[in-house]
């Protein structure tokens, strides 16, 4: 077992227990132990960065400090959390001046950022700690009939200089992980472009227009489902299809899954164990194709 401090964030426990359940059930089967730590907070994502970058960096650093104190590397499920934390981690490791400033702020909370731990997205853990071979061997279900439109969301890849996850123009990690489960990852137009999720709440019409393009493009490419990593992308594309239906009178009904859910299914975990009934777009047809 390799242990990681689990950074759960706000959205997943609040809105997407199916994501949390899939991860908590699937990852230990692959030898990854998720450790829950006390006193974690919000990761300080873009909405807070918009209010004050310095404060946001400090909050992210605070959470990393908790992992440092527990002597564990950190794993995130939410791509947004990954971005906030990994970006802060790299920036503070690279920039002594900034680190000193942030540590001055953190001292009020009795913390000091040391910069001796990694922040990893669970896809990194799957590729680096588990490995594609072990993953392939662990699959018990046949997903080969599935054409998957993978959608990593923005903050897994960008800003690449700080996240250092994958090639931002030609990413391959996510698609390889999908194909390792036996499904086929397909190309579609503007695959790497944003879902518009972050504009929800400020400019819903704009957000929806962007999400609609994503749904149109994946449908056009003949995808059986969209697979996401980020709770915001999920929300935008799953619930989004309902909104598109009422705003544009268009019905797509393309299932949206988190990769952790697809992983859970591939490993043979029962759909109800994964809390899949939380999805807005029904998965019945899709589930029937997984044997």
């Amino acid at each position: 077992m390799t242990s990681y401090a689990l950074f759960l964030g706000c959205t997943i426990p609040a809105r997407q227990p199916h994501y949390e359940a899939s991860a908590r059930k699937a990852l230990p089967q692959l030898g990854i132990e998720l450790v829950d730590l006390d006193n974690m907070t919000c990761c300080a994502p873009p909405p807070l960065q918009s209010i004050d970058l310095e404060t946001s960096l400090s909050i992210a650093a605070y959470n990393i400090c908790l992992a440092e104190e527990a002597d564990l590397n950190m794993i995130t499920l939410c791509t947004g959390c990954f971005e906030s934390l990994a970006m802060a981690n790299t920036m503070l490791k690279q920039n002594e001046k900034l680190k000193a400033r942030v540590n001055q702020i953190l001292s009020s909370a009795g913390k000091e950022f040391k910069g001796n731990k990694e922040v990893k997205h669970y896809l990194q853990v799957l590729t680096q700690d588990v490995g594609l071979d072990r993953l392939k061997k662990s699959v018990t279900k046949d997903l080969s009939s599935l054409k998957v439109a993978s959608f990593s969301g923005c903050h897994l890849l960008r800003p690449s200089a700080l996240l250092k996850f994958d090639d931002p123009e030609r990413p391959h990690v996510f698609d390889e992980l999908i194909e390792a489960l036996g499904a086929k990852s397909i190309w579609y137009r503007n695959k790497l472009k944003c879902c518009g999720g972050l504009l929800r709440g400020y400019a819903d019409d704009v957000a929806l227009a962007i999400a609609r393009e994503k749904i149109v493009n994946t449908t056009k490419a003949g995808a059986d489902c969209i697979v996401t990593l980020c709770p915001f992308c999920f929300l935008t594309l799953d619930l989004g299809q309902m909104l598109i239906k009422s705003a544009f009178h268009e019905e797509y009904n393309i299932p949206v899954l988190h990769y952790a859910e697809l992983l859970g299914l591939a490993l043979g975990i029962e759909p109800k164990e994964l809390a899949l009934d939380f999805h807005k777009i029904r998965l019945d047809k899709l589930l029937s194709e997984i044997r």
Binding site: P17, A21, K25, L37, D38, N39, C42, A109, E273
Partner: peptide, 13 residues
């Protein structure tokens, strides 16, 4: 769903 109770957030910090 078999999920553990949520840990409290570090509001004071």
């Amino acid at each position: 769903y078999g999920l553990p109770p949520l840990k409290s957030a570090g509001v004071e910090a």
